[in-house]
Amino acid sequence: MDLDLLSRQLIDRFQHGMPLCAEPYLEMARVLSCSEAQVLACLQRLELAGALSRVGPVFEHSRAGASTLAALAVPAERLHQVAERVSQYPEVNHNYGREHHYNLWFVLTGPDRRHIERVLEELERDTGLAPLDLPMLTAYRIDLGFALGENP
C-alpha cells in the first residue's frame, strides 16, 4: 500500500504511543497540524486497507508465564507436515519458515517453564527432531515498532 504523507506521519509519530487523554485524536490532530476528522478518516482508511493492525493497548503477555523461541531442522520434504503439527499447538503464536539448516522457528508461550519443556519433549518424541530451545535472557528492545524510514 502506498502511504500519503499524513498516514506516514501518523504511523511514525504514534506507533510507539498515543496521547492518553479524552479525545486523543483531537490532540493527535494538533500535533500533526490537521483536523480531528482527518486523523480519524486516515485511521479508518488504513484499517480498511489492512495497514492498521489496531489502535489501543499492546499487552505484555510474557509476564503472565513462560515463553521461548524454538527451532527445528526439518528435512525439506517433511517441512509442511511438521509445520502443521507445530502450528496446531495453542501454545504456538508465531511459526515461521526460515532459510537455514534450522528452517522452522516458532514462539512457545505457556503458564510456566515446565509446560514449555513438556511441549518441546512431546514435539521431539512425535517428530524425532531435537528442538533448539532459546528462551530470552535479556531484552534490549521489545517490539516497539520500527521507523518507516525515508523514501516511501
Binding site: V55, P57, V58, F59
Partner: peptide, 10 residues
C-alpha cells in the same frame, strides 16, 4: 502490564 498504547501498524 501494558507495553504501549498506540496506533499499531501492520
Amino acid at each position: 502490564a501494558i507495553r504501549r498504547i498506540a496506533a499499531v501498524p501492520n
